[in-house]
Structures are given as structure tokens and as C-alpha cells.
Computed example of a mutant assay.
Amino acid sequence: MSAQAATALLEPGSEHASPGGQYTYRVLGPCCRLFDREELPWPCCRLAWRSKEPSWRRVGRRFVADLASRRCPTYAVELLQPGARPTRTVITLFTERLGSELQEWWYSKLPSSLDQVNREPPSRAQK
């Protein structure tokens, strides 16, 4: 089973069924899943430590894009379950892959991506 290519964002407020159909969710908006480097083991998770292994000193940014979800769209959502309050959470749609243009907007490392003009993905900004 191959992943579908996501070429546009899901609209905020739209409701969708999960891939397995077990629950429904309302999209609040797109977000990126970050990995917290402070949660890395110190100095290493192995019992035998050798001096030639890489150092885990915390140099650089604390939060970095999660490599596992970098190619898939992630949304802040409300899970809608019958008879229960909506629960806010973050889900990553691993059944979809971001198109190259959308992935560059979502997880860009370029300094120009911080510009206010880039608040919307390229396809929405042109509308």
C-alpha cells in the first residue's frame, strides 16, 4: 500500500474519519511535530560507553523537526467521540506524504521561511 500525495492542507473546521474509521476528528489547523532534544538519554542509553562514540552534549536548538513525521502532514485536531467531550490532540497522517512544495513550506530550514509572507502554503497564498 503506497501513501497518497498530500497537495493541499485540510481546511480548519472540516471533519474527517480516521483511516481505520474508528473515530472522527475536526481539524483545528496544521502544526509540526517537534522532537525535544532534552529528552535524549544522558550521556547514552547503552550500558557500555566507549570514548569514540558521539557526544550527546546539547548544542544547538532544543526542539527540532521529528524525522519520523517530517514527510507527512500533522494537524492539531479535536477527536469527536459519541457521548464524550471532544479531546484535543495532535495527529500525523502517515498514510499521506507531503508533496515537495508543501513539505518545503511545512518544514523549511531556510531563513526566508520565517518571513510573514510564508504564513500560508504556496497554493493558498496565490489565491
Rank of each mutant, 00 (worst) to 15 (best):
P86F: 04
P12E: 05
I91H: 10
A125Q: 12
R37E: 11
L9I: 10
A65C: 05
E104R: 14
E96P: 01
S14R: 14
A5V: 13
Y107A: 09
Q4H: 11
R50A: 03
Y75P: 12
Y107Q: 10
Q116V: 11
C44Y: 07
L110W: 00
P86I: 05
P54D: 03
D36P: 14
R50D: 02
Y23S: 06
E53K: 10
Q22H: 14
C44E: 04
R46V: 12
P19H: 12
T7D: 07
G99P: 07
H16G: 05
V27Q: 01
C45N: 12
E78M: 08
R97Y: 05
D36H: 14
K109S: 06
L114H: 07
A6C: 14
L28W: 01
R26I: 11
G29M: 04
L67A: 06
E38L: 15
G21L: 07
R33H: 11
L79Y: 00
E53D: 15
R26D: 12
W106A: 15
E104A: 15
W42N: 08
E11N: 10
T87P: 00
V117E: 06
N118Y: 13
A6S: 08
R71V: 02
P73V: 04
P30N: 11
A3F: 04
P41C: 05
R119G: 05
T87A: 10
R88Q: 13
D36S: 13
L80H: 08
S18L: 03
D66N: 06
